[in-house]
Design a binder for these strands. Structure first.
Length: 584
RNA sequence: GCGCCCGUAGCUCAGCUGGAUAGAGCAGCGGACUUCUAAUCCGCAGGUCGCAGGUUCGAGUCCUGCCGGGCGCACCA
């Protein structure tokens, strides 16, 4: 909910009135009118572009229309002063009482301040991580994991019904490779010398455990079988063990999925055929021959008639194959079925959080979702760019072969889950992210996690100090919620309230745009505003939070301090980061 | 060759779906600790928003074309 919405409805009634008696046209379209907090403090507390947006409809110059509107706004209770600026903005300063009322809202809402119903109860499925079960999660998986998880929380906090989902790619060639790799490790566990892991198989030492487990359970019996017999056994054991590890890693990151969907199950239950039947009925499938990609013809290219999805009808660049040359379905086909399945389970908005290497996959999947849902489903794909792990400014070189591979678990163990979660959100998802394992544990301004946690710890420290210095003071949330806030009139105090009051709009905007990283920047701003006010108390003792001789003033300020910690806690809550009340 | 992403201060990056004189942090320079935690704060300096057009009251943001960097381009997942 935007704090300025009510000013907009005031404007609309003003327009209605002016339309009846004031000589303006009736039924003006005010949909593009905004009321917002200007970036520039000198532009006041609220600015509106109303005069500029409406000038054409009204047939007046923006500044002339602004003059008319200005008179109406000046009469409003919450408006202390108003002026016309620039090309026709109306800048208003609001009364201290208005801001004090906003502060009261923070205290009344507590840690759910900023939660809203802007989502209107829409059902959203957020699919994230979805790493192939062929090895442990690495750092880049962690980014997608956090982005998806926090996006899900953000949507849940803003009136969406959210499903958190992981798609297990347990069908296809890659897990067969996994099964064969595990078989080698099985032989190794039985004492055979397997030498170098052949090219094309997974060399990772993490499969040794799988080999041990297979040996322990099956003894020598697998050796007597054909591959067609042992492969399902080694494959399934490997998948189960890998997924168990993935789940542990997710738990370590504080992530709890609602649903794990299996690709194999999608296929086995005939959902691929069902989804393709829908496409077929819509006339989106045909038999055809693709042109080779221009400028880069693969060596083994040969024209071939295959079953194609008419993706070009939905904005993709080429039509996409649904069946391989051997007649089996492509991964794309089962993925269409999977997305159709998510849609038919009740989510009209689907979000996929994918890694950078899936960039080329976006258009075709969106095309497919549009086609298979007859335009009713909407798919947003968030591509997470790479995470560059660093140590004290030096990039960490990673190579699976050389064994210098940094897993997500390594990172969590080194810097902690809260740090990982926060840092992953300090860049927008489509920009690469430098993650310096040393810098993020520094206790300094450079480290955004620390900076925000420190601000929060300070708020709690102030309230602890106050309770000690002034034992008669009521410092519980309930008490602070009823405090007389009228003593809060210093511009620096009002400024902090303005920042805090921006939280609900920030949450709603970030949720609707599917951009959780915005909250990290906002929290940094809140911390900055608070640290600034805290330091003002040094230069101007009358601004200190605790004034032992003035109980009314002190409690009002404690309410402001408490509101600050509530907003930080609300933000960290959505991030899934634990707020620290003390740092030492 | 085609598609997607990126290009903003010396460096790392924001810029809230088109708003005003483009903002932070770091680095640089200058200040503030008998004090509610100085692990913090305040100030100064720093810009052709890659280039050129276009759309309109108004463009870092939208459109077109270039330049430069990254990624991906049947029958892998």
């Amino acid at each position: 909910m935007n704090n300025f919405d009510y000013l907009k409805s005031e404007l609309e009634s003003v327009l209605g009135w002016l339309g009846e008696d004031g000589g303006l046209p009736k039924d003006l379209d005010a949909s593009r009118v905004t009321f917002e907090l200007p970036r520039e403090a000198s532009h006041g507390d609220v600015a509106t572009n109303a005069a500029m947006v409406l000038s054409k409809q009204v047939g007046m110059a923006p500044r002339d229309l602004a003059q008319i509107l200005l008179t109406e706004f000046e009469a409003h209770d919450a408006v202390r002063s108003a002026e016309i600026a620039g090309p026709g903005f109306i800048n208003m300063r609001l009364t201290d009482a208005f801001w004090q009322a906003r502060l009261a809202e923070v205290l009344a809402a507590g840690e759910t301040y900023g939660h809203s119903g802007v989502g209107g109860g829409a059902t959203v499925n957020v699919e994230y991580v979805s790493a192939n079960p062929t090895g442990p999660l690495h750092a880049a998986h962690g980014r997608g994991a956090v982005v998806g998880d926090v996006l899900a929380s953000l949507l849940a906090a803003t009136g969406h019904k959210v499903t958190r989902e992981y798609y297990v790619n347990d069908a296809g060639a890659q897990v067969d490779v996994l099964g064969r790799s595990a078989y080698l490790r099985y032989l190794e566990a039985l004492g055979e010398d397997i030498g170098e892991i052949p090219e094309g198989l997974y060399p990772g030492a993490y499969l040794k455990d799988v080999g041990q487990a297979l040996a322990a359970e099956h003894g020598e019996s697998l050796k007597a079988m054909d591959q067609s017999e042992w492969l399902p056994v080694t494959k399934n054991t490997a998948i189960d063990m890998m997924m168990a590890e993935v789940r542990e890693d997710l738990t370590a990151l504080g992530i709890e999925m609602d649903v794990f969907s299996s690709e194999r199950a999608i296929v086995a239950e005939g959902k691929v055929e069902a989804a393709l039947a829908v496409l077929e009925a819509g006339g989106h499938i045909y038999q055809g021959v693709l042109e080779p990609p221009k400028g880069k013809t693969p060596d083994d290219w040969e024209p071939r008639e295959q079953t194609l999805f008419r993706a070009t009808a939905f904005g993709d660049d080429v039509d996409r194959p649904l069946k391989k040359s051997d007649g089996s379905y492509t991964y794309f086909a089962s993925d269409i079925a999977y997305h159709y399945d998510k849609f038919t389970r009740g989510s009209d908005t689907l979000i996929d959080v994918l890694g950078a290497d899936h960039g080329g996959y976006v258009k075709r999947m969106q095309a497919a979702v549009t086609a298979v849902t007859d335009g009713k489903g909407r798919l947003d794909i968030k591509i997470c760019q790479l995470v560059k792990l660093m140590k004290a400014g030096v990039p960490i070189k990673m190579s699976k072969r050389a064994g210098t591979f940094v897993t997500l678990r390594d990172v969590i163990d080194q810097v902690g889950r809260d740090v990982v979660r926060f840092i992953m959100l300090t860049r927008k998802n489509d920009a690469t992210l430098d993650f310096d394992l040393e810098k993020v544990t520094e206790e300094s301004r450079d480290n955004p996690v620390w900076y925000v946690q420190y601000a929060n710890a300070r708020t709690h420290s102030v309230i602890r100090q106050a309770a000690e210095a002034m034992p008669d003071l009521e410092t519980s949330d309930a008490a602070l919620g009823k405090v007389d806030l009228s003593p809060l009139t210093d511009p620096a105090e009002i400024e902090l309230i303005r920042v805090l009051a921006g939280w609900p709009g920030m949450v709603a905007g970030a949720a609707l745009a599917h951009e959780p990283h915005r909250l990290a920047y906002y929290l940094n701003d809140v911390a900055g505003a608070f640290h600034g006010l805290w330091n003002k108390g040094k230069e101007s003792p009358e601004l200190r939070f605790i004034r032992e001789d003035e109980a009314v003033l002190t409690t009002a300020r404690l309410a402001l301090v408490r509101a600050t910690s509530l907003v930080i806690a609300a933000g960290l809550g959505i991030f899934g980061v634990r707020a620290r009340e003390e740092l030492r």
